[in-house]
Computed example of a mutant assay.
Amino acid sequence: MYSTTLKEEIKSDLKSILSAHRYKHVLGVAKAARQLALRNDYDPDKAETAGLLHDAAKQLPLEEMQELARQSFGDRLDDAIMTNGGLLHGYAAVTVARTKYHLTDEEFLAALAHHTTGAEVMGTLEKIIFVADYIEENRDFDGVEHLRELAAADLDQAVLAGYDSTISHLLEQDKLIFAGTVINRNAQILAMQKKGRQKNG
């Protein structure tokens, strides 16, 4: 299903609609996702394909993102997501994957939807794409090397560090923080505590 032919088709399509900078990022996320999948005993072709499609709707006008998102989610998305392209584009990408490439696997689509916002409960592929988006080789921000080290050692710890990085950045920039980010971060800590992998605090 996640064949080389499909991946090449997606690359060709994305190259024609994304800026060179965004396309380079997408290739980086796909590469990082494949590497994380191999480390975490997950299907590398599925992860790579999700990495390619995660930003498929990133550079569309907000109105187009909203229309695409409604096709897959109706009115279920929070207004804070629907009015912010930075949060919405993953949900819009779900419709691109479904309608253009006939990809209907719910786990796959969830990874696209939640790659920026995260979710209270995330499967392995969701975590892989969430983390790959932070650590791909073209990223250059304070703390990225630490995130890469965590990702190489423990995917759950890298997810938590990703939430922390986003929250810290938004605080430094005096920007609004999507409440779901805090909720999802707390859920990640609780899930890790249940696994005995995070100290109570």
Rank of each mutant, 00 (worst) to 15 (best):
T4C: 08
T5P: 04
L6S: 00
K7G: 08
I10G: 07
K11S: 10
S16Y: 01
I17A: 03
L18G: 06
L18M: 13
L18N: 10
S19F: 06
Y23V: 00
H25P: 04
L27H: 00
L27Y: 02
A32P: 00
A32T: 02
Y42F: 14
D45N: 13
D45W: 10
E48T: 06
E48W: 02
T49E: 05
T49F: 05
L52V: 00
A56K: 01
A57Y: 03
K58E: 08
P61Q: 01
E67M: 12
L68Y: 14
F73C: 07
D75I: 11
D75G: 13
R76W: 09
H89P: 00
A92Y: 06
T95R: 13
A97S: 07
A97P: 04
Y101R: 04
Y101A: 09
E106S: 14
E107D: 15
F108T: 03
F108L: 05
L109S: 02
L109K: 06
A110R: 13
A111N: 08
L112R: 06
L112W: 04
H114E: 06
T116D: 08
T117K: 07
G118T: 09
F130Y: 14
V131H: 04
V131N: 07
A132E: 02
N138W: 09
F141A: 02
F141H: 02
G143H: 08
L150P: 07
L150G: 06
A151F: 03
D154C: 09
L155I: 04
L155R: 01
G162P: 03
Y163Q: 01
D164V: 10
H169Y: 14
H169K: 13
L170W: 13
E172S: 15
K175Q: 15
A179Q: 12
V182K: 14
I189T: 05
K194F: 05
R197H: 14
R197P: 06
K199Y: 13
N200P: 11
